[in-house]
Design a protein around this nucleic acid. Sequence first.
DNA 1: CGGAATCCTCTTCGATACTG
DNA 2: CAGTATCGAAGAGGATTCCG
Lengths: 214, 214
Amino acid sequence: MTRRSYDQFCGLARALDLVGERWTLLLVRDLSVGPQRYSDLLAGLPGIGSGLLAERLKQLEADGIVRKAHLPPPAAVSVYELTEEGHELALAMLPLAVWGARRIGDRDGRLFRADWLMLTLRSRFRPDRAEGVRDTYELHVDGEVVHVRVHDGRIEGQRGPAPAPADVTIRTDPETLLALGVGTLALDEVLGDRRLSVEGSDEALARCLAVLGS
Amino acid sequence: MTRRSYDQFCGLARALDLVGERWTLLLVRDLSVGPQRYSDLLAGLPGIGSGLLAERLKQLEADGIVRKAHLPPPAAVSVYELTEEGHELALAMLPLAVWGARRIGDRDGRLFRADWLMLTLRSRFRPDRAEGVRDTYELHVDGEVVHVRVHDGRIEGQRGPAPAPADVTIRTDPETLLALGVGTLALDEVLGDRRLSVEGSDEALARCLAVLGS
DNA sequence: CGGAATCCTCTTCGATACTG
DNA sequence: CAGTATCGAAGAGGATTCCG
C-alpha cells in the first residue's frame, strides 16, 4: 500500500504526489465549499466507487489536507472538512480551474452542480474593493441555490439559500454564469437579457458588481 | 482509445480531463522552460516509459497545448514546444507548484534539476518592480547552470549559462534555493552564509533582489 | 442507513525490446 | 534518435457484503 511517487525535488511534483491522483482534487473542490458527509461526497462524484473514495479520504487525512469532524448531537453525524492546508490548496488550484473553465465548451449533457461555481466566483473576488462591504448574494442556477457572504474583505460560499434575505438575488443558467466567472462575458452585457435576472437594490447590485470584479 | 472524462461542467474537472493524467503536468513543466526533443523529455522523466510519453505528447498536441516544431538545418531536429495555451497553463499551475514546494521536506535522495526552479523563481517575479530593468542572472545549483533574463517587465528562463556575462551570478544548493523561492527563507539571511554566494555589482544585486521579491 | 472492506473485471502504467 | 509493440503489474470501477 505504498503510494507511488515521482520522487523529484520539485514543488509541482510534490504537489502531484500529494493530490495528483484521480478524483483527489475534485474531492478538495467539493469540500472547499463546506464540510460534507461520506455519502454526500459519494453521491456528488458519480463514478468514483466507494472503496476509492474511502482510500482517497484516508490519504488526504494522513497528509493533513482533510480532517474528520463530528457534529454535536442531535445531528451526531461525522463529516469531512478541509484543514487550513486544505484551504490553501483550494486557493492554489483556482487558477487551474479558471484555465479549464475557459476551455470548457458547451454543457453537452455534462453533470452540473451550482456549488462548483463557487470556485470561479471566488476567482473574481476583489478584496481591495470589498472594504466595509457586508453583503449576502444568492444565486439560483439550474434549480439549485447557493449563496456567498462578503464581509471583512473576505468571501465565503455556502450551499443552499441565504439564512436571511439576500442583498442581491441572481437567477441564471450554468453556461452564462460560467462565462461571467471566467470573464468571457461581462455582466452588463446580459443584465437586460433573458439569460439572467437580478433582484435587489441598485446600491447592493453596484457593490456586488464591484466586489465580483465586473 | 477514447479518453476517460469526469464529465462535469466545471472548470477544474475540465482542466483535469485535459491535463490531470499521470505525467502530463510534469511534461508541461519541462516544456515551459523551452523546447525539448523527445529523447530529452524521456531522459528528464525517469519512470515514464516511452509509450506513455508518446501518447501524452499526442494528446497534448491534439488539445493544442503542445506543438511539434522542426528546427532549421543544420540542426534539423524536431522538438516539442508549448503553444500559447500551453504557456497559459504553465502559469496557471504555478500556485499549485508553490503550494507543493512549501511541503516538500528534505531532499532525501530525490531527483533534482536546476530548471525546475524556474517555476518557483517565476512565482516570485514582481513585474511592477521590473520596469526598465534589463538584466541577466545566472544560477549555479548542484553542478547545473541556468539563467533568467528580465526585460520589458517580463521574466524568461533558459537552461545553460547566459550567452553574455551575467549581471549577477548566484551559487547555491537546491534546498536553499527552494526555500528562497517559496519565501521560507529570506535572501539577506543567507547572504553572508556558506550556503549561498553572490557575484555582481551592488546595483545589479539590488535590482535582482527587488525584481525577485526578496 | 452511514461508512467502509472485499472481490472481480477492465483499463492504465512501466519497462524493455524492437523498427524506420 | 523518434517513436511502436508487447506484456506483466498496478490502479480504477462496479457490485456486493459487512458492521455499527
